[in-house]
Computed example of a mutant assay.
Amino acid sequence: MAKPNYTLKDKTLNGLGNLIRLLPTGTVFIYQFLNPILTNNGHCTIINKYLSGILIALCGLSCGFSCFTDSYTDNEGTTHYGIATMKGLWPTSKSMDTSSYKISVGDFVHAFFTIVVFGVVTILDRNTVDCFFPAFESTEKMLIMVLPPVVGAISSVVFMVFPNKRHGIGYPSN
């Protein structure tokens, strides 16, 4: 069987698709929507800090959890979604063998770096910085300017070494 030739355009679009799958769009939207409310636009009281911290933690967990979800299409053409386990997908259809969907080291690597990238997104948010670190000096602002490209470069290399093979909830299987 001949191996298909992929053009630069195909590889670029595939890489862009993998980047989009890195952070669940719904999770980032919820964070961007609720964060100004919970941080009181950066003018936080102690309750705002707790609520914003809970939001960041829940969204980070959602990003990490999404790395362990997958989908498959059964013999009848129905798409099923599940959570990857040591034995395969759960829940699973009795008519389909899902043992090839077992958790791998790459899933944990993806989850870790997805959470790190979400952390960078939160640090780039002005309301979050003003809420948790109101006295940021110019030297610390340099960290915020340097951190995203560094994390992006490291994450890109790691995701090339551990390509994402999962089609999580909301992403169709090929």
Score class of each variant (00 low, 15 high):
I56P: 00
P24H: 10
S71P: 12
L51P: 09
Y81A: 09
L23N: 05
D74E: 06
L34T: 10
L8G: 12
N48A: 02
S99T: 14
P4D: 05
N35A: 12
I47F: 05
C44V: 08
G82R: 08
C59A: 08
A2T: 15
L61F: 14
T12N: 03
C44K: 01
S62R: 02
I103P: 05
H80S: 09
P4H: 09
A2I: 13
T39W: 01
A57S: 10
P24V: 03
D70L: 01
I103M: 04
T98G: 00
S66L: 00
T45L: 05
V105D: 08
F33Q: 06
D10H: 14
L13D: 11
K94R: 15
G53V: 03
I47V: 07
N18S: 14
P24L: 01
V105H: 12
T7I: 04
S99F: 10
L58K: 10
T69L: 01
I20M: 09
S71T: 11
N14S: 13
R21M: 08
T98E: 00
K49R: 12
D74V: 08
I54E: 13
I46R: 05
L51M: 14
K11W: 13
A84L: 09
D10P: 12
M86Y: 12
I46Q: 08
L8H: 13
N18R: 15
P36Y: 04
G106I: 00
L51W: 13
V105S: 13
V28G: 00
T25V: 11
P4E: 07
P91I: 02
T7Y: 05
K9L: 11
F68V: 02
D74C: 08
T78F: 03
N48R: 03
G17Y: 06
L55C: 07
S66M: 01
L58Q: 11
I30Y: 07
P36G: 07
N35I: 11
Y72L: 01
P91R: 08
H80R: 06
L38F: 09
N18K: 15
G106N: 06
T69M: 04
T45V: 09
T7V: 06
I30G: 06
T12D: 01
T7C: 05
K9E: 13
T78R: 13
I54R: 11
S100D: 05
S71I: 03
Y6L: 14
E76H: 10
T85I: 06
N48W: 04
Q32T: 15
F33P: 02
S99D: 06
Y72D: 01
S100V: 09
N35E: 10
R21K: 14
L13C: 12
Y101D: 01
S71E: 07
F29E: 03
F65N: 05
K9D: 13
P36I: 10
L19R: 05
N41V: 07
T39E: 01
P24C: 06
I47R: 04
G82K: 09
V28R: 00
T85M: 06
